[in-house]
Protein backbone atom coordinates (compact mmCIF):
# COMPACT_ATOMS: atom_id res chain seq x y z
CA UNK A 1 0.00 0.00 0.00
CA UNK A 2 1.12 3.55 -0.71
CA UNK A 3 -0.04 6.68 1.10
CA UNK A 4 0.72 10.22 -0.10
CA UNK A 5 0.31 12.95 2.52
CA UNK A 6 0.02 16.55 1.34
CA UNK A 7 1.86 19.01 3.54
CA UNK A 8 2.10 22.77 3.22
CA UNK A 9 4.70 25.19 4.51
CA UNK A 10 2.98 28.20 6.08
CA UNK A 11 4.20 31.39 7.72
CA UNK A 12 4.32 31.39 11.49
CA UNK A 13 1.52 33.86 12.15
CA UNK A 14 2.55 34.40 15.76
CA UNK A 15 6.11 35.25 14.74
CA UNK A 16 4.80 37.92 12.35
CA UNK A 17 4.36 37.85 8.59
CA UNK A 18 4.62 40.19 5.62
CA UNK A 19 2.76 40.82 2.40
CA UNK A 20 4.87 42.05 -0.51
CA UNK A 21 4.14 45.03 -2.73
CA UNK A 22 2.01 42.84 -4.99
CA UNK A 23 -0.12 42.05 -1.92
CA UNK A 24 1.09 38.48 -1.95
CA UNK A 25 2.11 36.70 1.20
CA UNK A 26 5.89 36.64 1.60
CA UNK A 27 6.48 32.92 1.96
CA UNK A 28 10.19 33.21 2.70
CA UNK A 29 9.83 34.47 6.28
CA UNK A 30 9.67 32.41 9.43
CA UNK A 31 7.50 29.40 8.82
CA UNK A 32 6.60 25.87 9.72
CA UNK A 33 4.68 22.81 8.67
CA UNK A 34 0.99 23.71 8.58
CA UNK A 35 -0.22 22.37 11.93
CA UNK A 36 -3.40 20.97 10.41
CA UNK A 37 -1.20 18.71 8.26
CA UNK A 38 0.15 16.96 11.36
CA UNK A 39 -3.16 15.11 11.72
CA UNK A 40 -3.06 13.37 8.31
CA UNK A 41 0.63 12.61 8.94
CA UNK A 42 -0.29 10.93 12.22
CA UNK A 43 -3.07 8.94 10.49
CA UNK A 44 -0.56 7.83 7.84
CA UNK A 45 1.94 6.75 10.48
CA UNK A 46 -0.73 4.70 12.25
CA UNK A 47 -2.08 3.15 9.06
CA UNK A 48 1.43 2.28 7.91
CA UNK A 49 2.01 0.40 11.18
CA UNK A 50 -1.36 -1.32 10.94
CA UNK A 51 -1.46 -2.22 7.29
CA UNK A 52 2.10 -1.86 6.10
CA UNK A 53 2.50 1.05 3.72
CA UNK A 54 5.01 3.40 2.21
CA UNK A 55 4.30 7.01 3.23
CA UNK A 56 5.34 9.80 0.86
CA UNK A 57 5.04 13.46 1.89
CA UNK A 58 4.36 15.91 -0.95
CA UNK A 59 4.77 19.66 -0.68
CA UNK A 60 4.66 22.55 -3.12
CA UNK A 61 6.27 25.78 -2.03
CA UNK A 62 9.42 27.93 -1.95
CA UNK A 63 12.90 26.71 -0.90
CA UNK A 64 11.88 27.03 2.74
CA UNK A 65 9.11 24.48 2.21
CA UNK A 66 11.78 21.83 2.54
CA UNK A 67 11.36 22.43 6.27
CA UNK A 68 7.78 21.18 6.07
CA UNK A 69 8.99 18.13 4.16
CA UNK A 70 11.67 17.48 6.81
CA UNK A 71 9.17 17.76 9.60
CA UNK A 72 6.92 15.27 7.78
CA UNK A 73 9.87 12.86 7.59
CA UNK A 74 10.37 13.25 11.35
CA UNK A 75 6.69 12.47 11.82
CA UNK A 76 7.00 9.17 10.03
CA UNK A 77 6.97 9.72 6.26
CA UNK A 78 9.49 7.49 4.45
CA UNK A 79 10.43 10.00 1.76
CA UNK A 80 9.37 13.41 0.55
CA UNK A 81 8.83 15.20 -2.73
CA UNK A 82 9.15 18.98 -3.00
CA UNK A 83 7.67 20.74 -6.02
CA UNK A 84 9.80 23.86 -6.39
CA UNK A 85 9.61 26.35 -9.25
CA UNK A 86 9.82 30.14 -9.31
CA UNK A 87 6.78 30.27 -11.58
CA UNK A 88 4.60 28.93 -8.75
CA UNK A 89 4.68 31.98 -6.51
CA UNK A 90 1.24 33.57 -6.30
CA UNK A 91 -0.66 30.53 -7.56
CA UNK A 92 -4.34 30.27 -6.69
CA UNK A 93 -6.17 27.13 -5.63
CA UNK A 94 -6.97 25.96 -9.18
CA UNK A 95 -3.28 26.16 -10.14
CA UNK A 96 -2.14 24.53 -6.88
CA UNK A 97 -4.43 21.54 -7.38
CA UNK A 98 -3.25 21.25 -10.99
CA UNK A 99 0.38 21.02 -9.91
CA UNK A 100 -0.27 18.71 -6.96
CA UNK A 101 -2.31 16.39 -9.20
CA UNK A 102 0.53 16.32 -11.74
CA UNK A 103 3.01 15.51 -8.97
CA UNK A 104 0.83 12.68 -7.68
CA UNK A 105 0.64 11.39 -11.25
CA UNK A 106 4.45 11.54 -11.51
CA UNK A 107 4.68 9.53 -8.29
CA UNK A 108 2.52 6.85 -9.89
CA UNK A 109 -0.56 7.65 -7.81
CA UNK A 110 -1.36 6.12 -4.42
CA UNK A 111 -3.96 3.98 -2.70
CA UNK A 112 -4.69 6.72 -0.22
CA UNK A 113 -4.11 10.46 -0.47
CA UNK A 114 -4.35 12.32 2.83
CA UNK A 115 -4.74 16.09 3.17
CA UNK A 116 -5.18 18.46 6.09
CA UNK A 117 -8.49 20.18 6.66
CA UNK A 118 -7.11 23.58 5.68
CA UNK A 119 -3.99 25.67 5.89
CA UNK A 120 -3.18 28.10 8.66
CA UNK A 121 -2.61 31.02 6.29
CA UNK A 122 -5.69 30.87 4.12
CA UNK A 123 -7.81 27.93 5.40
CA UNK A 124 -9.84 27.85 2.22
CA UNK A 125 -10.28 24.04 2.18
CA UNK A 126 -10.49 24.32 -1.60
CA UNK A 127 -7.64 21.98 -2.49
CA UNK A 128 -8.79 18.49 -1.40
CA UNK A 129 -11.93 18.18 -3.55
CA UNK A 130 -10.26 19.80 -6.57
CA UNK A 131 -7.44 17.34 -6.29
CA UNK A 132 -9.81 14.37 -6.06
CA UNK A 133 -11.78 15.65 -9.06
CA UNK A 134 -8.61 16.00 -11.13
CA UNK A 135 -7.47 12.50 -10.12
CA UNK A 136 -11.00 11.14 -10.64
CA UNK A 137 -11.04 9.42 -7.29
CA UNK A 138 -13.66 9.70 -4.51
CA UNK A 139 -13.10 12.25 -1.73
CA UNK A 140 -13.99 11.72 1.92
CA UNK A 141 -13.54 15.12 3.51
CA UNK A 142 -13.65 16.46 7.03
CA UNK A 143 -12.72 13.16 8.67
CA UNK A 144 -13.04 13.21 12.46
CA UNK A 145 -11.93 9.56 12.34
CA UNK A 146 -10.56 7.25 9.68
CA UNK A 147 -10.31 3.49 9.31
CA UNK A 148 -9.15 1.47 6.32
CA UNK A 149 -9.89 -2.20 5.80
CA UNK A 150 -10.48 -4.48 2.84
CA UNK A 151 -9.58 -1.67 0.44
CA UNK A 152 -12.37 0.55 1.80
CA UNK A 153 -11.87 3.82 3.70
CA UNK A 154 -14.47 4.78 6.32
CA UNK A 155 -14.67 8.18 7.99
CA UNK A 156 -16.85 9.99 10.48
CA UNK A 157 -17.88 13.47 9.42
CA UNK A 158 -19.46 15.71 12.04
CA UNK A 159 -22.08 18.20 10.91
CA UNK A 160 -23.88 20.65 13.20
CA UNK A 161 -26.74 18.33 14.11
CA UNK A 162 -25.56 14.91 13.01
CA UNK A 163 -22.55 12.71 12.44
CA UNK A 164 -22.28 10.70 9.23
CA UNK A 165 -20.38 7.54 8.48
CA UNK A 166 -19.08 7.70 4.91
CA UNK A 167 -17.20 5.05 2.96
CA UNK A 168 -15.34 4.90 -0.34
CA UNK A 169 -13.29 2.22 -2.06
CA UNK A 170 -9.56 2.86 -2.55
CA UNK A 171 -7.95 4.65 -4.24
CA UNK A 172 -9.47 7.60 -2.39
CA UNK A 173 -8.58 11.00 -1.00
CA UNK A 174 -9.32 11.78 2.65
CA UNK A 175 -9.00 15.15 4.39
CA UNK A 176 -8.34 14.65 8.08
CA UNK A 177 -9.39 17.13 10.78
CA UNK A 178 -7.83 17.94 14.14
CA UNK A 179 -10.47 15.74 15.79
CA UNK A 180 -8.97 12.55 14.34
CA UNK A 181 -5.94 12.05 16.59
CA UNK A 182 -3.29 13.69 18.71
CA UNK A 183 -0.09 13.92 16.69
CA UNK A 184 2.84 12.39 18.54
CA UNK A 185 5.83 14.64 19.04
CA UNK A 186 8.73 13.06 17.11
CA UNK A 187 11.31 11.29 19.28
CA UNK A 188 15.01 12.20 19.13
CA UNK A 189 15.56 8.96 17.26
CA UNK A 190 12.88 9.80 14.70
CA UNK A 191 14.51 13.20 14.18
CA UNK A 192 17.86 11.56 13.62
CA UNK A 193 16.51 8.94 11.23
CA UNK A 194 14.72 11.64 9.25
CA UNK A 195 18.05 13.24 8.31
CA UNK A 196 18.85 10.23 6.17
CA UNK A 197 15.51 10.15 4.37
CA UNK A 198 15.44 11.57 0.85
CA UNK A 199 13.69 14.75 -0.32
CA UNK A 200 13.34 14.74 -4.11
CA UNK A 201 12.83 18.06 -5.89
CA UNK A 202 10.66 18.37 -9.00
CA UNK A 203 10.05 21.42 -11.18
CA UNK A 204 7.24 22.23 -13.58
CA UNK A 205 9.15 20.99 -16.60
CA UNK A 206 9.57 17.58 -15.00
CA UNK A 207 5.86 17.57 -14.19
CA UNK A 208 4.99 18.70 -17.73
CA UNK A 209 2.91 21.57 -16.37
CA UNK A 210 2.74 24.73 -18.48
CA UNK A 211 4.14 27.64 -16.40
CA UNK A 212 1.46 29.87 -17.96
CA UNK A 213 -1.19 27.82 -16.12
CA UNK A 214 0.17 28.78 -12.70
CA UNK A 215 1.36 31.83 -10.78
CA UNK A 216 -0.14 35.32 -10.61
CA UNK A 217 -0.79 35.49 -14.37
CA UNK A 218 -3.20 32.58 -14.21
CA UNK A 219 -4.73 33.44 -10.82
CA UNK A 220 -8.33 34.59 -11.00
CA UNK A 221 -8.37 36.15 -7.55
CA UNK A 222 -6.98 39.68 -7.46
CA UNK A 223 -6.15 41.01 -4.01
CA UNK A 224 -6.70 44.76 -3.90
CA UNK A 225 -5.99 45.62 -0.32
CA UNK A 226 -4.61 44.05 2.83
CA UNK A 227 -5.07 45.76 6.11
CA UNK A 228 -3.97 44.68 9.57
CA UNK A 229 -6.81 44.45 12.05
CA UNK A 230 -5.82 46.82 14.85
CA UNK A 231 -5.09 44.77 17.95
CA UNK A 232 -7.89 44.99 20.49
CA UNK A 233 -7.00 47.31 23.31
CA UNK A 234 -7.09 45.30 26.51
CA UNK A 235 -9.49 46.82 29.01
CA UNK A 236 -9.84 46.80 32.72
CA UNK A 237 -8.50 43.76 34.61
CA UNK A 238 -9.90 43.21 38.10
CA UNK A 239 -9.14 40.74 40.86
CA UNK A 240 -12.16 38.57 41.60
CA UNK A 241 -11.89 39.06 45.34
CA UNK A 242 -12.63 42.75 45.03
CA UNK A 243 -16.30 43.64 45.46
CA UNK A 244 -16.32 45.62 42.23
CA UNK A 245 -16.15 42.61 39.96
CA UNK A 246 -19.82 41.74 39.74
CA UNK A 247 -20.75 45.43 39.67
CA UNK A 248 -18.34 46.03 36.78
CA UNK A 249 -19.82 43.11 34.85
CA UNK A 250 -23.39 44.27 35.41
CA UNK A 251 -22.63 47.86 34.46
CA UNK A 252 -20.94 46.64 31.25
CA UNK A 253 -24.12 44.71 30.42
CA UNK A 254 -26.29 47.73 31.17
CA UNK A 255 -24.13 50.24 29.33
CA UNK A 256 -24.36 48.09 26.22
CA UNK A 257 -28.07 47.35 26.56
CA UNK A 258 -27.40 43.63 26.87
CA UNK A 259 -29.95 43.15 29.63
Amino acid sequence: MKIIVLVKYVPDIEAGYRFNSARRLDRTGEGLLNQLDEYPLEEARRLALELGAEVVALTMGPDEAEEAARRALQMGADRAVHVLDDALEGSDAVATSLVLAAAIGALGGADLILCGAGSADSTTSLIPVQLAARLQIPALTGAASLTVSNQVATIRRDQDTRSLELTAPLPALVSVTDKANEPAYPSAKAVMLARKKPVAVLDLEELEVDPAAVGPGAAKVTVMEIEPVPPRAGGQVLEADSDDVVAAFVSLLQANALI
Binding site: P231, G234, V237, A240, V245, V246
Partner: peptide, 22 residues
Protein backbone atom coordinates in the same frame (compact mmCIF):
# COMPACT_ATOMS: atom_id res chain seq x y z
CA UNK B 1 -4.91 41.10 26.13
CA UNK B 2 -8.11 41.13 24.09
CA UNK B 3 -10.68 41.42 26.90
CA UNK B 4 -12.64 44.61 27.54
CA UNK B 5 -13.18 43.38 31.07
CA UNK B 6 -10.85 40.83 32.65
CA UNK B 7 -11.61 39.08 35.90
CA UNK B 8 -8.74 37.25 37.58
CA UNK B 9 -10.20 34.50 39.71
CA UNK B 10 -11.94 31.17 40.00
CA UNK B 11 -14.78 30.94 37.51
CA UNK B 12 -16.67 28.56 39.83
CA UNK B 13 -17.16 31.54 42.13
CA UNK B 14 -17.26 34.44 39.69
CA UNK B 15 -19.83 33.09 37.22
CA UNK B 16 -22.52 32.11 39.77
CA UNK B 17 -22.11 35.48 41.52
CA UNK B 18 -22.52 37.27 38.18
CA UNK B 19 -25.54 35.10 37.32
CA UNK B 20 -27.17 35.90 40.65
CA UNK B 21 -26.64 39.62 40.11
CA UNK B 22 -28.20 39.43 36.63
Amino acid sequence: EVADLGIVGDLAEVLPAAAAAV
